[in-house]
Design a protein around this nucleic acid. Structure first.
Ligand SMILES: [Zn+2]
Ligand SMILES: [Zn+2]
Ligand SMILES: [Zn+2]
Ligand SMILES: [Zn+2]
Lengths: 137, 137
DNA sequence: ATAATACCTATAGAAGCTGGAGGAAAAGAT
DNA sequence: ATCTTTTCCTCCAGCTTCTATAGGTATTAT
């Protein structure tokens, strides 16, 4: 039996976050000690580790909820789980694809200013004028 | 004189967002018509375009507030503005650097599952086991 | 004059936590 | 057994940047 603090140290998930996951229904309501404190078992630790790992990979709470639901049906086909992962890969690729043009524009903007007076600042002029940009964004 | 709807169409910023920027102090409180409706002039449109462009490049409201403040002092050196842009470039690069390992892991995870039963699903096993990952994240 | 459109304020919700207040329980020291 | 410290409890507010109602008023077009 683990206290919430021990579970927190074991998984790297902060205590208020564990309570939040319980409130969101990702973690079942924990058993309680006589004095109303949460007590966990190793299955809880595994479930929370799964959640943390999925969160670290950027899955939303909703996606994780579905993945956990699917885990409970060992004999069903896994296409739904696979599809959620594919979708997450697309989301990550999409974020990168949106950040790269920003990186390019910011490189241009920061590289061109000679650090003179505000009224001649290339940074401020670029922000005022999207026409100076090389890409849409 | 522009109504808030016209300003919205001219800049691509939604009406509630314009009101929100006023509340946050990014836009000055607009003049009002006899019937208490906001009226804008072309300087307001330029300021809002600046804000939108900076937001599109990922600058935070706080950073934009500072950039706008600096714009008001044409004869001062622009190093502070330049520094804010450099910082933003770092933030964008940092985000990309954090997303790339996620992309790699998700590529591996999605490529390896044969779509059989849940109990053998490589996606779910990978999420349960960070040891299967090739990178930290 | 009437109808349609655009505007107003105030408030809540989204996503995923994080931190604080005020108080109770558990654990270690004496 | 008592004292002190640490850990835990619940409830609630705040972060960030909007976005979307709801209920009501102003402006414009016919
Ligand atoms: Zn400059
Ligand atoms: Zn641009
Ligand atoms: Zn699978
Ligand atoms: Zn991993």
């Amino acid at each position: 039996m683990l206290t919430i603090g021990e579970l927190s140290r074991a998984t790297g998930v902060k205590i208020p976050t564990i309570r939040y996951y319980e409130q969101m229904g990702l973690m079942a309501a924990a058993e309680r000690s006589g004095g109303n404190q949460r007590r966990y078992e190793s299955q809880d630790r595994e479930r929370l580790s799964f959640i943390k790992h999925a969160r670290d990979l950027g899955f939303t709470i909703e996606a994780i909820r579905e993945l956990l639901e699917l885990s409970g049906h060992p004999n069903r086909p896994c296409v739904d789980a696979d599809q959620i992962a594919v979708r997450q890969l697309e989301i990550v690729r999409d974020k990168i694809a949106k950040l790269r043009p920003l990186e390019k524009e910011l490189e241009r903007i920061t590289a061109h200013c000679h650090g003179d007076q505000i009224k001649d600042c290339y940074v401020l002029q670029s922000l005022a004028n999207h026409d100076m940009c090389e890409s849409e964004h």
